[in-house]
Design a protein around this nucleic acid. Structure first.
Lengths: 222, 222
DNA sequence: TACAACCGGAGTGATTCGCTCCGCAAGTTC
DNA sequence: GAACTTGCGGAGCGAATCACTCCGGTTGTA
């Protein structure tokens, strides 16, 4: 997809900047929500605004690229999880990988950007992979029997950002960021253990619809 | 605190407006984060901007009142939980009550408003109540032994808002709001079950510091 | 009809937004 | 080292949005 061949130090710097931009965009989006400004993203990446706009023609284009990369990360994590022989370990590592990547940062821009064909295709694939992961875990009886794919998706979204971490980052408290990340991991471990098939009481309410996801991303449906 | 005596239908309307404003403020704050505008809050409450500013002299005053009410709700839930004879049920109901109230909405305004003496006093009391709740659960051996009060606070903060719910509300999809709330409750149930003392593996990393909370609320500490 | 209480929202200056444009530094070729 | 290319940072622009003020209208009372 992207050619690894680099012809000089300028292109290498450009590539570093691009990576920093995307990571900064995720962090600022998590901290500021939908109102995240391009100036804040560029500043967080340690890059000028001009450099941002040389790579992405508009703010929307940057966000679309971000969404695509998140889906790539999701699918890659799901494939690795399926390659794990242990159905439980596979599922657990998938959830942790998605949450730590910052999958939840994208929630606030749902509905504000146009869904490209690439995004749609990757999203369809992610649905299949997740369904397979869960089906396998159910068959092995390691996953709570009434947990659905939507439940897992919502769990990942819920842990896809850490309020404490996001805010400390915004305040520039670099000294506490690692502690916050560790703490977030602890809470996530707790939640994942709650998915195990050792809890007798059923989950409350009816299983959720996938409309909770699909409809949120509909563009210009006002 | 507030006098229940009402002298006419005008005061009744004013009181209804006040309640609507506070609830709307929580929802808009959850959806828009720190950039939440007073216009959006007033609109969500179905109230004019003028009415908002008749009750609260500034945006900060509204947010301070909101923080106080959240602490009140926290403390009341904790007292009710301690009144429950079952240590586990008490703790679980406390967590659910705090999460459903929308405790997490306040995270984005930490550090942006001045902490009043009333807020500080109520916060101190909430620390004591939570410590007692957890101590009791530990002694009864129903709570994972290495779970700390900070872990629980972070869990409540994490579930104090629902990304899906917040965004659907912002999009005006009233038809899906109830489904999103139910789904959020399911995921919260999963996480709470992860707190039970039936999980042999210890939590990763060191127990978190309370600095993750205290320092975030320091005002003008730039 | 006169009055009082309270409402909604247009208007205001200040700020912030997405984005353009340009002067400059670093690397490459003679 | 001069000429040229490539990518950089950020000042500046019109438009949009912000917190907040102010006032004309509506509702209930006499």
């Amino acid at each position: 997809m992207t050619e690894p061949k680099r012809r000089g130090p300028r292109q290498a710097e450009a590539e570093r900047n691009d990576r920093a931009l995307l990571q900064a965009a995720r962090q600022v989006l998590a901290a500021d929500g939908a109102h995240a400004s391009v100036a804040a993203i560029a500043a967080a990446a340690g890059v000028g605004i001009g450099s941002l706009y040389r790579r992405y023609r508009t703010k929307e284009e940057l966000f679309q690229r971000l969404a695509e990369l998140s889906l790539d990360n999701w699918n890659q994590a799901a494939e690795q999880a399926l390659a794990d022989d242990d159905p439980w370990e596979g599922l657990a590592s998938f959830i942790v990988a998605c949450a730590e990547f910052g999958q939840g940062s994208l929630a606030p821009i749902a509905g504000t950007i146009e869904v490209t064909k690439e995004m749609q295709a990757k999203s369809d694939r992610s649905d299949e992979l997740l369904a397979a992961l869960i089906e396998r875990a159910h068959q092995a009886r390691v996953l709570r029997p009434d947990v659905t794919a939507i439940d897992i998706s919502l769990l990942i979204e819920q842990f896809g950002r850490s309020p404490a971490l996001d805010q400390l980052r915004k305040q520039g408290r670099e000294d506490l960021i690692e502690a916050a990340a560790d703490a977030h991991k602890r809470v996530l471990t707790i939640a994942v253990d709650g998915l195990r098939a050792c809890h007798p009481r059923p989950l409350p309410g009816a299983p959720p619809t996938d409309r909770l996801f699909t409809e949120r991303w509909a563009h210009e449906a006002g």
